[in-house]
Design a protein around this nucleic acid. Structure first.
Lengths: 136, 136
DNA sequence: CTGACTGCAAACGTTTTGCACGGTA
DNA sequence: TACCGTGCAAAACGTTTGCAGTCAG
């Protein structure tokens, strides 16, 4: 189990028990929405407030400790900041997985045909995860 | 000016003046969020209700007359349904433009390295539009 | 003419804020 | 110890709903 105390402090965030638990939940689950995170946190802190969740998520976003992922037809999820990557979203069960896509070629080709100076891209693939393929 | 009456009816939506105005606003602006759409609509209908906007946007989404685009760090915007395309988002002024990217190669390569059966992808480029490049 | 649409007001769910207390550094 | 974080309650915000009157087909 990774110790997130130092990593939190590197991001200018005090290492409180609640924040450590959020970090651990994100580490284990990969991608979580607010509602699910609150449910998980309630198991560890019987009286944690939703306000605390929101305040911490917002601070963690501002300090780049975590990132938001907007998924079509679903609630936003949050993940620990790591190397640039894209996402696979299962339209059946909602599962979200990471996938690494080489973006430089895509960005280069779009830069050529647009007026934009492109800095980054967000890419989400929609489909069916392994388990849900069998069901359908 | 395109007449959207028939197109609305093809999507099983009655052609009311409010809906025609929404269609026209989307046609002219390309991409609009709810707040901006409401402001535009108020110029044509001095007593239009936000509830009407929401009801129509939701019906238009259900009937695929329009589509939602989720942009990182911004409100969702809506656009008339058209051929598959991606988006350029200006992080400075919020301008959004369409761009056409060949997706089959990308989807094929990701399909090979993931367990997912991929049906579609959403791609948003973040950067600076032509005007905002000069300012910075 | 009839079912669908509109506008209003109220309800709802989600997110933010203010404040007193408690805990980290 | 000083300041930041927490939990609670209330407020703010965006969106949805129910209803009575109106309109498109």
């Amino acid at each position: 189990m990774i110790n997130y105390s130092d990593i939190l402090r590197e991001h200018h965030l005090k290492a409180t028990p609640q924040r450590l638990a959020i970090a651990e939940a994100l580490h284990i689950k990969g991608h979580i929405n607010i509602e699910t995170l609150y449910e998980i946190m309630l198991k560890n802190f019987n009286s944690i407030s939703l306000a605390t969740i929101y305040k911490n998520i917002n601070l963690m976003l501002e300090n780049s400790f975590i990132q938001e992922v907007k998924i079509p037809n679903a609630k936003s999820v949050y993940e620990l900041t790591k190397e640039t990557h894209s996402h696979l979203s299962c339209e059946e069960c909602g599962d979200i997985e990471d996938v690494y896509v080489e973006s430089s070629d895509i960005i280069y080709s779009v830069s050529k045909k647009s007026d934009f100076e492109i800095k980054d891209m967000e890419l989400v693939f929609l489909g069916l995860c392994k388990d849900c393929q069998k069901v359908d």
